[in-house]
């Protein structure tokens, strides 16, 4: 019965054509592209990285102010970030805008739709979601084979990392987004998932918010074994602020000298470099098991 219905639907030539070129974005909106878009604007650094990774860089005509990877992205025209400049965006005459669900000013998408510019929204839920996004974008922009290869390689890398940390004891981690006041990542945030995948336990797991201001008392009580400081060009915790953590001499992380920096871009951007980010985090959390496997490789 079911099979027959499907047969009827797919059997209609008109429908097959639509289903091949129609996509549903993460906001649940259905979009139809007659041919691969040639002028794409990316509204997130992670999306820019995805498009370059699938060799669709030439189709990219506009990026955000913070798109700095790969270096070719720096040469693309800039349109702003959370509150992009609509005029320069429209002037680029895009036939597709790919936008993240977070950070963007809500009325921007509405305005773009009023201007008949299709906006495809990507919501970052989890790591597997990144690979699905890469494949979906690949089909939209006509780079499906390359995108599928990229996604497959990433899946393999992630699986390899997880195999290597298998059997290790999870490590208690504090990820310091901001020191004064202390802001960290909590459940529901992307980085919280990465910590779990890299064999760590986020000590802010009991906080109700994705980016909570964590009580210093709770930090000492939970006694993290590793402190991770994201660093980068435009963000991150400075050296002297990291030094300030050394005053908590009873903390295991301080006693064992396990204060580590990590490239913020790798973890903050749900893009193709996520495997690198996950690996560096795993190295920080489980140096023994990872190095040994690396030696063996």
């Amino acid at each position: 019965m079911k099979r027959r219905q499907q047969g009827i639907l797919t059997g209609m030539p008109f429908m097959t054509h639509v289903s091949a070129r129609a996509y549903v974005d993460d906001a649940g909106r259905r979009m139809y592209f007659a041919k691969p878009p040639a002028r794409i604007v990316s509204l997130a650094p992670s999306i820019t990285e995805m498009l370059f990774a699938m060799e669709a860089g030439e189709q990219l005509v506009g990026v955000t102010d913070f798109c700095d990877y790969p270096p070719e992205a720096l040469k693309k025209p800039k349109v702003g970030y959370s509150n992009p400049n609509l005029e320069s965006l429209v002037a680029l005459q895009p036939d597709l805008v790919v936008a993240p669900n977070d950070f963007l000013k809500p009325d921007v998408i509405v305005r773009l739709e009023q201007l008949n510019i299709p906006v495809f929204i990507l919501a970052d839920k989890n790591v597997e979601g990144i690979f699905v996004h890469i494949q979906t974008l690949g089909r939209i922009v006509g780079r499906s084979p390359k995108a599928d290869t990229v996604a497959m390689q990433l899946r393999q890398q992630v699986a390899a990392i997880q195999r290597r940390i298998q059997g290790t004891t999870p490590v208690r981690v504090l990820y310091v987004l901001n020191s004064q006041p202390l802001i960290t990542v909590g459940p529901g945030s992307f980085i919280d998932q990465l910590i779990g995948m890299a064999g760590g336990i986020n000590i802010a797991a009991k906080s109700a918010a994705p980016y909570p201001r964590l009580s210093l008392e709770a930090v000492l009580q939970e006694d993290p074994e590793v402190l991770v400081f994201p660093v980068g060009k435009a963000e991150g915790i400075s050296e002297s602020e990291q030094q300030a953590w050394l005053q908590w001499s009873t903390m295991t992380a301080v006693k064992q000298g396990r204060l580590h920096q990590i490239s913020a871009d790798w973890l903050n951007r749900p893009g193709p470099r996520i495997a690198q980010g996950l690996e560096s985090l795993a190295v920080i959390l489980h140096p023994d098991s990872i190095t040994s496997s690396q030696v063996g490789r």
Binding site: F66, Y81, S82, N83, F103, L177, N178, Q180, P181, L182, I183, Y211, R213, L216, A234, E235, G236, A264, N268
Partner: peptide
């Protein structure tokens, strides 16, 4: 407005008034 959003969150938290 010109700050990286992750870092401006820290500034906003500070501006809102907080004791450490």
């Amino acid at each position: 407005s010109i700050m990286e959003p992750n870092r401006s969150a820290g500034l906003m938290a500070w501006l809102m008034g907080s004791l450490t």
